[in-house]
Amino acid sequence: MKQDRKREIISRIKSFPSMSGIAAKALKLLDDPDANAAQVEQLLKQDPGLTANLLKLTNSAYFGIPSKVGSVRHAVVMIGWKKVSKLVMAACVNAITNRQIVGYDLPPGVLWQHSVAVSVTAEGLMRELKIAESDEIFTAALLHDLGKLILGGFVEKELDEIEKVAARGIPFQMAEQEVLGTNHAEIGGLMLESWSFPTELVNAVRWHHDPDSAPQTGVMTDIVHVANVLCLMIGIGIGVEGLHYEPSVSATKRLGIKPTQLELIASQTLEWANELAGVFE
């Protein structure tokens, strides 16, 4: 029965609509080393929603830009091509996550807010630990909960049973696994695998709740795990899952994070979340 349910869930991955055509083209363009801001701006003009989200992120207090940015080219001048590329990616992710996520009690916009917060926290961790900046870690953090988009309907149907299991004091994703035969992290990894994302990035999403069970441990998986847990611990995007989360002791040891550093990043995450708050209203 459980295996039949898992097969049904996995079969939904093939029919799941990926990003809009413009969003997909924008991400492809960002991977082109010869691309420039004018090309990206021209493409985004075809999707006003993407452009609006990009500019809202750019104009948030997080970046502290003194004057309002009104175009992609202006954004590049003010914060640089690399940061704008990441914000375009965040805006593209909004195109598929800005909806109510049934089963998880997440109203429209909350999953995107959580995803952006985890990405920002991951970057903060990299700076604090003096780890070289990585676009792939940012992307993995941004996409880590994508599996909820498919699993939510199944969670909704079995929520009473899942909550009974979770009431035993185990994390929500483990309760998902026990009842459904899979969990949102595994489904998210399979989604990215089907979209031909790099293996390391797929693994970071697949094991973001349980990095110690990954076939191979790595910095990307550990960073995304710790960033996600920090955001959940301070209440960003918790929904029905509650607060039953703590960072893996092994992951924090592998990264060399001290408790004082975790406290610092947690307090910074709250500050960053407040600075970005206007974007999600």
Rank of each mutant, 00 (worst) to 15 (best):
S115V: 04
S115K: 07
V116Y: 10
V116P: 13
V116S: 12
V116H: 10
A117P: 15
A117T: 15
V118P: 00
V118L: 05
V118T: 14
S119Y: 03
V120H: 12
V120R: 08
V120A: 12
T121Q: 11
T121E: 04
T121W: 04
T121L: 11
A122F: 00
E123A: 14
E123W: 08
E123L: 14
E123T: 02
E123F: 04
G124N: 10
G124K: 14
G124F: 05
G124L: 14
G124H: 12
L125H: 08
L125E: 04
L125D: 02
L125S: 00
L125N: 09
M126D: 03
M126G: 04
R127M: 08
R127E: 14
R127K: 12
R127H: 12
R127G: 03
E128V: 02
E128C: 05
L129P: 05
L129M: 13
K130L: 07
K130W: 13
K130Q: 15
K130S: 15
I131Q: 02
I131F: 05
A132T: 14
A132W: 08
A132R: 14
A132K: 15
E133S: 14
E133L: 13
S134I: 05
S134C: 07
S134Y: 02
E136F: 14
E136W: 08
I137M: 01
I137W: 04
I137G: 00
I137F: 00
I137E: 01
I137C: 05
F138D: 00
F138E: 00
T139F: 03
T139Y: 04
T139V: 08
T139G: 01
A140I: 14
A141S: 15
L142V: 04
L142C: 01
L142I: 00
L142M: 06
L143R: 13
L143C: 12
H144W: 03
H144L: 06
D145Q: 12
D145I: 00
D145E: 08
L146M: 13
L146R: 09
G147W: 01
G147M: 07
G147V: 03
G147D: 09
K148C: 08
K148N: 09
L149N: 09
I150F: 07
I150P: 01
I150D: 04
I150N: 03
I150G: 03
L151H: 06
L151Q: 06
G152P: 10
G152M: 10
G152K: 11
G152Q: 10
G153K: 09
G153Y: 08
G153C: 04
F154R: 07
F154L: 05
F154P: 06
F154K: 05
V155I: 12
V155K: 09
V155N: 07
V155D: 05
E156H: 10
E156I: 05
E156G: 01
E156V: 06
E156S: 11
K157C: 07
K157F: 07
E158A: 13
E158S: 13
E158V: 02
E158C: 09
L159G: 05
L159Y: 10
L159R: 15
L159I: 13
